[in-house]
Design a protein around this nucleic acid. Sequence first.
DNA 1: AAAATTAGGTTGAACGTTCATTCAATAGCA
DNA 2: TGCTATTGAATGAACGTTCAACCTAATTTT
Lengths: 213, 213
Amino acid sequence: MVGALKSVRSAKKGPRARGVREEPGVRRQAIVEATMRCIAEYGYAATTIDRICEEADISRGLINHHFSSKDELIAQTYKQLAEDLKAETRRAVQASEGGAEARLRAIVRVSFQAPIFDERTLAVWLGFWSVVRTSEVLRGMHRELYASYRRALAGILEAMARERGVAIDAPRAALTLTALIDGLWLEWCLDPQAFSPEAAEAACLAVLEGLFR
Amino acid sequence: MVGALKSVRSAKKGPRARGVREEPGVRRQAIVEATMRCIAEYGYAATTIDRICEEADISRGLINHHFSSKDELIAQTYKQLAEDLKAETRRAVQASEGGAEARLRAIVRVSFQAPIFDERTLAVWLGFWSVVRTSEVLRGMHRELYASYRRALAGILEAMARERGVAIDAPRAALTLTALIDGLWLEWCLDPQAFSPEAAEAACLAVLEGLFR
DNA sequence: AAAATTAGGTTGAACGTTCATTCAATAGCA
DNA sequence: TGCTATTGAATGAACGTTCAACCTAATTTT
């Protein structure tokens, strides 16, 4: 869950439990979430194994017990965040009532509201962008994610055009919307005082409206 | 110059000249450009002092003679690239003939043409984004750059609105355009096969047109 | 004009630190 | 008695930085 990013630094220190059986995968999940918090807090470059261990309150050796390497942990973390964002968006779409236009408006709304439109969440997402270019694995996941996102968006845009009885270039419109959202995420993350979430959403909705005229 | 990024790996190896007097600052410039090439080629994380030295064909110690630290070198490199992008855009605007609309179209055009819209150039720019969040110095430069860019854009948008005799929300329109351009840079850089430069420019021009209706 | 001196660019080995990874040892659960 | 989770010290590689020594051009002295 993206919400788990909300800085829940564990307070209790001291000796840790050894050999305690937990639900399978919960430790993995905890490590992944600690990794996200580290990237959000210190940036990607300063996200070391030591820091992740401290954040997750585990010993150094445990990470390589649950993950074959740091690269794999990073890849899993990216995958998790991508799935979180996708799930959050899907949830918003399914909760919307009305036609294609309502679904599109729901997508725009969820993109500029917590937990997605949150400085820490976007910082992690942004931190991964520069790594996507150099990591084979991450690049593959990224392309698949964005391709499917644009495809889904184009489908809804096409449906909205039918609703309104106008013709649009759906692929181009989908490209426009994804780029605009990414750009607003980026710029707000790098300077949250430059504009408000409301302004970002309004700008996005204005462009959406402009696409159908 | 941004164009210097075009991978001009020096071929000649062997012993290097010692103590040769050169124009002041040319070595600094060469190191900065080598840094850009490294970020473009290997990514920000893999841009080490050793690699920069190899790329610039100098010894390891020389960097700390021209720059007080790696951080300063990185900051200088960011500054250089930011100035290059700004200068390239300004050039395009000044070369344009006509009114505010022509100037805006020139800005859009130059944003999606070489040397700016180039995989290596954008990779460096993208590589810096995640660092901007964690470096005090870079963050300051970034905010100043984007604030002035949006301000200038809003001015031209206002002028174009006057030309057409319509009223627009110029600050919001400027925010929209910068975010859209950044988003298209980002997405094309991470997946150049997702869409063509022409499609990106067309999408941007369509949004520009939509802002005035 | 020749020689000596100064100044600053350049080198590469050395240093201390930090990093990811490995592994023998340990603890609890089945 | 296994089996798996967990620890923490050890390892070696890679990192940024420092520094004494070197080299050449420019400047000053003789």
